[in-house]
């Protein structure tokens, strides 16, 4: 589904990702771990198409298409979802309206009619029920005045509405207390199917207690220095990042 080949990237001329290669197939969950500054966030930004970040060399193919040539909007429409570490607040724009715009953008791009607003409301209610989310998420403005945990839950709600093929969750666990973490993780688990894939970008392994990865990759200084299964994350937890970063 996603193929990253020898990717070099950064921003403002600083190279932060220094040659990453990674292949992700449908149905898989990959965890990308690493200390601060290892290039995790840059990788996430590059995948999402953030305009401030630039890939200097290498290639990313998503379902065979050159991802780096696609605008953020097109990437989303192609089925990529980015769960942001710091979702931005947009006062004045109702959350439910925003979700409907996003849902309709998908439909229009697939050549379908826009959804009837009442039908969308039903769809939204159903998704919110599945995720155990309160009614306030419909009424409030987009992330406006949301707590850290509420913002992350709202990202998962968007993911549920958009039904992406590939989701990248950037530090979704940061700033969450244990209850919020459980809700978010359960939500993500409910959205899993054998056809979609997930990249979890995280500093700590605690998220992986709730969402079980098939593969764990450790990033250091812009490169994957070790790959393994779930056991690798636990080993990192007990030994610290020095264990892999210095061993290399």
């Amino acid at each position: 589904m996603l193929e990253i080949k020898d990717l070099h990237a950064g921003f403002d001329g600083n190279e932060i990702v220094k040659g990453i290669s990674l292949t992700i197939n449908k149905g898989e969950i990959h965890a990308v771990m690493g200390p601060n500054g290892s290039g995790k966030s840059t990788l996430a930004k590059i995948l999402s198409g953030h305009p401030s970040y630039e890939a200097t060399s290498g290639e990313i193919l998503f379902e065979g298409k050159n991802l780096l040539e696609m605008e953020a909007e097109k990437r989303s429409l192609a089925g990529i979802f980015m769960g942001f570490q710091y979702p931005v607040e947009v006062p004045g724009v109702n959350n439910a309206e925003f979700l409907r715009m996003a849902h309709n953008a998908r439909r229009v791009s697939a050549g379908e009619e826009e959804i009837d607003p009442l039908d969308f409301d039903d769809l939204l209610s159903e998704k919110m029920k599945t995720l155990g989310m309160e009614k306030k998420y419909k009424e409030r403005n987009l992330n406006d005045g949301f707590s850290g945990g509420e913002k992350k839950k709202n990202e998962i709600l968007q993911m549920a509405i958009l039904e992406p093929k590939l989701s990248i969750l950037d530090e979704t666990d940061s700033g969450l207390d244990i209850d919020a973490l459980r809700v978010v993780a359960e939500g993500v688990n409910k959205l899993r199917t054998e056809n979609n894939a997930l990249i979890l970008i995280t500093h700590y392994q605690r998220l992986l207690d709730y969402i079980k990865p098939d593969f764990v990759h450790v990033l250091s200084n812009g490169k994957i220095v070790k790959s393994g299964d779930k056991a690798l994350a636990l080993e990192l937890e007990s030994q610290g990042y020095d264990w892999v970063t210095t061993a290399n």
């Binding site: 999402s48 198409g49 953030h50 305009p51 605008e71 953020a72 909007e73 990437r75 989303s76 429409l77 980015m82 942001f84 979702p87 931005v88 947009v90 925003f98 715009m101 996003a102 953008a105 998908r106 791009s109 968007q158 958009l162």
Partner: peptide
């Protein structure tokens, strides 16, 4: 802000 617009775009919504 540019960040707000990017957020919309990353959800498939045009600028």
């Amino acid at each position: 802000s540019e960040e707000q617009l990017f957020y919309f775009e990353s959800r498939g919504i045009s600028r």
